[in-house]
Amino acid sequence: MRILSINIIIVFLLAKVATAQQDTIKTKHWLIPKSVITQYAGSIGYLSAGVGYNLNKSGNSTLDIHYGHVPASKGGSLHIVTAKFAYRPFHIKINQHITLSPLNPGFFLSYHAGSNFDSTWDDNNYPKGYYWWSTAFRPHVSLSTELSLKSEKTLKSIGIKKLSFYSEFNTNELYFVSLFQNSKYLGLHDIFKLGFGSRIYF
Rank of each mutant, 00 (worst) to 15 (best):
L55M: 13
S134E: 13
V141G: 14
T19P: 00
T145V: 00
I9C: 14
P102L: 08
I37P: 01
V11M: 11
Y53I: 03
Q21G: 14
Y130M: 09
L155P: 06
L143W: 02
G159C: 10
F108M: 05
A20W: 11
I94P: 01
A49Q: 03
Y67K: 01
F12N: 11
T19W: 00
V70E: 15
S77A: 06
P71W: 00
N124E: 10
I3V: 09
L179Y: 14
A136V: 01
K184L: 05
A20V: 08
Y111D: 13
L143Q: 04
F90V: 02
I158Y: 06
H66G: 12
S178N: 13
G52K: 02
R2I: 01
V81Y: 03
L174A: 11
S48K: 01
T171A: 04
L13R: 03
S77I: 04
N116C: 15
K128R: 15
S35I: 00
S77G: 05
K153N: 07
N54E: 12
G159E: 10
N56H: 01
A41I: 06
A83N: 08
L174G: 12
F107H: 02
K28D: 14
H140G: 07
F12A: 11
Q39T: 05
N182T: 04
G106P: 06
H66N: 15
L194H: 15
I9E: 07
R2D: 05
G59E: 00
K128H: 08
A49E: 02
S142G: 04
Q96M: 01
F12M: 15
T99W: 02
F107W: 04
I158K: 13
G68K: 02
I158G: 15
H112M: 13
K162G: 10
L186P: 09
F117L: 13
P102Q: 07
N104Y: 00
S119C: 06
L186Q: 12
P33Y: 04
Y175K: 09
I92S: 00
G59P: 04
S157R: 06
Y87N: 11
S110A: 15
G197W: 02
E173R: 03
S48V: 05
Y46S: 08
S61P: 01
H69W: 15
N170H: 11
G68D: 12
I200S: 11
G42Q: 14
G50H: 03
L55W: 07
S144Q: 02
L186M: 14
E168I: 02
T135K: 11
I10Y: 04
L31W: 12
W121T: 15
L155Y: 06
S58C: 04
A86D: 10
L163T: 09
R138W: 03
Y87R: 06
G75V: 12
G59L: 00
A72G: 15
Y130S: 09
S77M: 10
H66V: 12
D64H: 12
P139W: 05
G45V: 04
T27M: 03
D118M: 10
F117M: 10
K161V: 08
H79T: 01
Y131H: 05
S134D: 08
A41K: 07
P127Q: 10
